[in-house]
Design a binder for these strands. Structure first.
Lengths: 227, 227
DNA sequence: CGGTTGTAGATTGTCGACAATCGACTGAAT
DNA sequence: ATTCAGTCGATTGTCGACAATCTACAACCG
C-alpha cells in the first residue's frame, strides 16, 4: 500500500485538542502575555468554534497552571513572579538530578551517545550564532535526560515544569550571553555521566540549572500595576 | 457587623467543581475502581446535571492522570500497574527529601513542633487501633512536610502524586502491619530534622517511604483481563 | 454630600439537542 | 465458508441558546 503521507494530518484531532495546542503554544511563545485576559466569547468566534470545546481546553490549561480562572470574572494567563521562577528552577534541578541518578543506576546503554549527538548539534548551532536552534536543542537535551531515566511519572511532571521554563525563556531574552559558552556548558554533564560519577553529575547539573535560573530571576521584572 | 457564620457555606462552588470533587473522591476512595468505565450520559443523569460541566470536570481528571479518555470510545479510571506504584513512591521520596532539605536550610521555626503535634496524635490513634485516623494523620504528616518547605510549585506537584498514593492506599489494605510501629516510624524523621542533620534526614525519609512503597508493590496484583 | 440600592451590560456557567464517530452485527456476493 | 460493504446502536464531540453572576454606574434616600 502506497504511503499516503498526509490528508489525515489535519482532522484526526478533536477540536478541543487543537484549541488546546493553539492556546498552549500562544502562551508558551509569549504571544499571549501573563496577565492578559481571555474572553471566551471573543476567543471562540476568533477561532471559529463554539464555547464548549474552548472551555474544556481552558479547564486543562487551568489544571496545568498556565491560566487562572476566577468565577464569573474571567480567565487570565498566569503571571510569573520572581519567586515562581526560583521555584521553577529549583524544582527542575531536583528532577534532573533524580533523572541522572536513575540513568547512572541502570547503566543506560545509549545515554552518553544520545546526549553527545545533541551536544554536537548545539555546537554547530552556536557556531552559526543560531539562538533559535540552540534554544530548541537545549530543551531537547534536558528533555532527553528526563526521558532516558525511564520514569514516566517523572516525565509527565517534568512536562508541566518544562512548559513554564519555555514560557519564561520566551518572555526574557538572554541573548547577551556568549553563545558558544552556553553550548559548552552542557559538556560537563555528559562527562560526569560518562564517568559514572553521581555526586559530580549532581553537582554539575545543579550548578548548570541554577546559573540559568539565577540569571533570569535577577533580571526579572513584573509589572505590578494592573491599571 | 455581626459575623454571620454560614449560609454561603453551601452553594458557592460551581457545578463543575462539585462534580470534580465528587468524582475525585470516588476515585481516591476506591469506590470507582481502576479500569471502570465512566459513561457521560449515565453519570450526568445520575448526578442530575448536564454533560457540559461533567465533561469539563473529566478533562481536569484527565490532565491530572486519574482517568484516561480514548476518543469516541470512553473514559476509564486509570489502572495502576506495579511500575506505576514504584514510580509513585520513588518520586515521592525525591520530593519529600527536597522539602526537608529546604526546611533545614531555612531553619523553619515551627517545623519540629508542628510535626511533633501530628506525631502525638498518631500515637494516640495507634493506641486506639484506629487505622482510619492513622492513615489520615500519615497523610497530614507528609503534607505538612511539603507545606513547611514553602515551595508552592512543589506543593502543587505533590498534590498529584499524593492523590495517587491515596488511591493506592484505598485499594490495598496494609492492615496486617503493627500499627504502633507504623506510627513510630515517623519519629526518626522528626529527630533528624531536630538534629538539623540533612544527610541523616534524607536517608531516613527515603527509607521510610521506600519501605511502604516496596510493601505495596510486592503485594500488587492487577487483573489484566478486561472482558 | 455620603452612602446605599437598584439597574444595565458584559462575561461566565449550564443546558438540551444535534452531529460525528466507533464497534459490532448483518447479509449478500464470490 | 470468507470477505467486505452497509447499517444500527451507543457514546463522545460540538453547537447555539438561556440562566446566573459580577462590575460599574446611575438613581435614590438620609
Amino acid at each position: 500500500m502506497p504511503q499516503l503521507p498526509s490528508l489525515e494530518h489535519f482532522n484526526n484531532k478533536s477540536l478541543r485538542e487543537r484549541i488546546l495546542d493553539t492556546l498552549k503554544s500562544a502562551i508558551l511563545s509569549g504571544e499571549l502575555k501573563p496577565g492578559q485576559t481571555l474572553v471566551e466569547t471573543d476567543l471562540a468566534s476568533q477561532l471559529g468554534v463554539s464555547r464548549a470545546p474552548l472551555r474544556e481546553a481552558i479547564q486543562i490549561l487551568n489544571s496545568e497552571g498556565l491560566v487562572s480562572t476566577v468565577p464569573y470574572h474571567g480567565t487570565t494567563v498566569t503571571k510569573l513572579t520572581r519567586t515562581d521562577i526560583e521555584e521553577l528552577y529549583s524544582l527542575r534541578s531536583v528532577m534532573e538530578s533524580f533523572a541522572i541518578q536513575r540513568i547512572l543506576e541502570q547503566h543506560h546503554p545509549t545515554a552518553v551517545t544520545d546526549l553527545q549527538a545533541i551536544y554536537e548539534r548545539m555546537i554547530a548551532a552556536a557556531n552559526d550564532n543560531n539562538w533559535r536552534d540552540l534554544n530548541m536543542l537545549d530543551r531537547e537535551f534536558h528533555d532527553t535526560i528526563i526521558t532516558l531515566s525511564g520514569h514516566s511519572l517523572l516525565a509527565s511532571t517534568w512536562n508541566t515544569v518544562q512548559m513554564r521554563v519555555q514560557q519564561v525563556m520566551s518572555l526574557h531574552n538572554l541573548r547577551n550571553r556568549n553563545i558558544v559558552q552556553v553550548a559548552n556548558n552542557h559538556l560537563p554533564i555528559i562527562n560526569a555521566i560518562t564517568a559514572n560519577d553521581l555526586p559530580l553529575a549532581t553537582r554539575v547539573i545543579q550548578q548548570h540549572i541554577a546559573s540559568t535560573g539565577d540569571l533570569i530571576a535577577e533580571g526579572w521584572h513584573v509589572d505590578e500595576d494592573a491599571s
